[in-house]
Every structure is written in C-alpha cells, then in structure tokens.
C-alpha cells in the first residue's frame, strides 16, 4: 500500500513549494487515476515519489508497504519496486538501449539477491516484451531514447516497466503523444500488469485513456493538494464540466 501523508515538497534550487499538504492512499491491486489542471503538481508528485534529488520534502511522509521511502535514493526506491514512466522520457546519447536494459534488470535482481540474467533469457524477455508492444527490435539498437518519436518514447517506457516488473507504477501522461492504435497497445500492456500485488497511479488529462485503463479511484490534484477523490465516474464528470466547479468548491 502507498500512503502519502501531509506531503510538502519544494524545488531545492529556489525553495518554491509545489506539493502543499498532499494526502493520498493507493492500495495494492488498485489503479488510481490522478487528474488536475496544468501546473497543479502532478509531475512533481511523480518525481517526489521516484526520488528525484531536485526536490526537498519539508513535511509529511511517503510510505510504501509501511516503510518510509524518503531517505532512499531513486535507485533504492526502484529496487523496492517503484517505477516512474516519465511524461518526457530523456534522450541519453551514447548509452545503448539494450545494454541499459540489461544493466537495469540485473541491478534490480542483484538488489533482490537474485542471479544476473543469462544473455539468452534476457534477449527472450526483451523480444517478447517488444513484440507485445509492437516495437521494432531495431529501435533498441539505438542509444537510449535518442531520436525516438514522442510515441516511441512512451512505448519504450512501458517496455521498461514490463521488463522491470515493478510493484508501484506511476505513469505520467503515458497517453500523450500516442496515436489511437498505440494508445490501445500501451493500455493493453498496462492492463496486463494489473495484479493484486501491484499499485498503479495513472496521471492523465483525458478520459480516453481511462476508457482503456479503467481506474478504481480518481483523484483531483490542484495547487499541490488532492482536493477531490471519487470513483471512475468522477473522471466522466470532469470531462463534461471541467475543473472550474471543484476548484471553486475548494477555494
């Protein structure tokens, strides 16, 4: 279970507070959708969960399976099962995608006390995951995300998620940049990972993603707080009415 309690976080560089007393609980097996206007702090929340060093938590706590993760660095959190699919995946020149996948998978296996994967087994897994996402293996011969189209980058994020089998998945606007078919493919990929021991946070602006990945709960983030929570029908209401009414309610 993920429990975020009265979380306050600011940008380390200039002290701007972005997350201002946020509370959120996501149970295992649950898919929670987070929506909210531009600039409300959704990506910031995802970074703070993943452990990006550019933010400071000044108050509150994040517990994953009952354990605070705040003192852990990003790699340690990943080893605990935390995974962030980035809104804007970064291009990393010079780092070969396949080499990176192998290093990442084996680093996590090592942290869990497992043996490194044998090359044939590694290749088998990558091929299977790529095929399920209709990704061309040739793409994986390139440096990490370099020259990938917007949609290809998003697919590559889900590919990594499939391979790393995290237990807490945070997907930040995975639907943006995807064409209609790709949206379906990626959503199927995410749905295939739904399981009783996995918690998922799906950040999105649009109902169309939630048609494919049907959430158990929907939360509205506004000015760094969760101001309204509900079931999947809340997303439909937002789609129809926009945010004005509830942000007005909160004011």
């Amino acid at each position: 279970m993920l429990e975020i309690r009265n979380l306050h976080a600011r940008i380390a560089e200039n002290g701007t507070e972005i997350i201002r007393g946020l509370n959120l609980t996501v149970n295992k097996g649950e898919v929670a959708a987070i929506m909210g206007p531009n600039g409300s702090g959704k990506s910031t929340l995802s970074y703070v969960i993943a452990g990006r060093a550019d933010y400071e938590v000044t108050e509150g706590d994040i517990l994953w399976n009952g354990e605070s993760i705040l003192a852990m660095d990003a790699a340690e959190r990943a080893a605990k099962g935390v995974f962030l699919a980035f809104q804007y995946p970064m291009e990393i020149p010079g780092v070969a995608t396949m080499e990176f996948l192998k290093v990442a998978m084996n680093a996590q296996r090592k942290a869990r006390g497992e043996e490194p994967l044998k090359i044939p087994e590694f290749l088998k897994r990558v091929k299977a995951a790529a095929a399920s996402l209709s990704m061309n293996m040739d793409m994986l011969k390139r440096p990490l995300n370099v020259g990938f189209s917007g949609g290809e980058k998003k697919r590559a994020e889900i590919l990594q998620m499939k391979l790393l089998e995290p237990s807490l998945c945070v997907l930040d606007e995975t639907d943006s940049g995807l064409d209609i078919d790709a949206l379906k493919i990626v959503a199927d990929g995410v749905n295939a990972l739904r399981s009783p021991d996995r918690a998922m946070i799906v950040i999105t602006h649009y109902q169309r993603l939630l048609d494919h990945i049907v959430p158990d709960t929907v939360h509205v983030l506004y000015k760094g707080q969760v101001i309204k929570s509900g079931d999947k029908s809340l997303a439909l209401t937002l789609e129809k009415d926009g945010y004005a009414q509830i942000t007005g309610e909160a004011a």
Partner: peptide, 8 residues
C-alpha cells in the same frame, strides 16, 4: 536521475 529511477 533517469538511470537511477530504473534501479541502477
């Protein structure tokens, strides 16, 4: 951060 977020 990107690499570390993948557990490296």
């Amino acid at each position: 951060f990107y690499l570390m977020a993948r557990g490296v």
